[in-house]
Simulated scan of single mutants.
Amino acid sequence: MKNKMSNRYELTDFKKLSNEELAEAFIFPSKEPLTVKEKQEEEEFWQERRKQFANRTPQQQIYDKLLQLKFQLEDYIGSNQYQAVLNFGYFLNEYVNIQNKQDKEFAAEIDVTPAVFSQYRNNHRKPTEKFVIRLELHSNGMIPALAWFKLLQKDKEHEIMTNTGIRIEESRHVKNRLEFAY
Rank of each mutant, 00 (worst) to 15 (best):
M1H: 09
M1F: 10
N3Y: 13
N3P: 00
M5E: 12
F14R: 10
K15L: 14
K15H: 05
K15F: 01
K16E: 15
N19P: 07
L22A: 05
A23N: 10
A25E: 05
F26S: 04
I27Y: 12
E32V: 13
K39Y: 04
E41I: 12
E42C: 12
E44F: 10
F45N: 04
E48W: 04
Q52S: 13
Q52T: 08
A54L: 10
R56F: 06
R56M: 14
T57L: 06
I62L: 05
Y63C: 06
K65I: 03
Q68I: 02
Q68C: 02
G78M: 01
Q81I: 14
A84L: 11
A84V: 07
L86K: 10
G89T: 02
F91E: 00
N93H: 08
N97F: 12
I98S: 05
Q99Y: 09
N100K: 09
D103M: 08
F106L: 11
F106V: 04
P114F: 04
A115Q: 14
A115P: 02
V116R: 07
F117E: 05
F117N: 04
Y120N: 06
Y120I: 02
N123W: 08
R125G: 03
K130V: 04
K130I: 13
I133F: 09
L135G: 05
E136K: 07
N140H: 13
G141P: 01
I143S: 00
L146N: 09
A147E: 07
L152P: 01
E157C: 04
T164A: 12
I166G: 01
R167L: 11
I168N: 04
S171R: 14
R172Q: 14
N176I: 05
R177G: 13
L178W: 04
E179S: 07
Y182L: 15
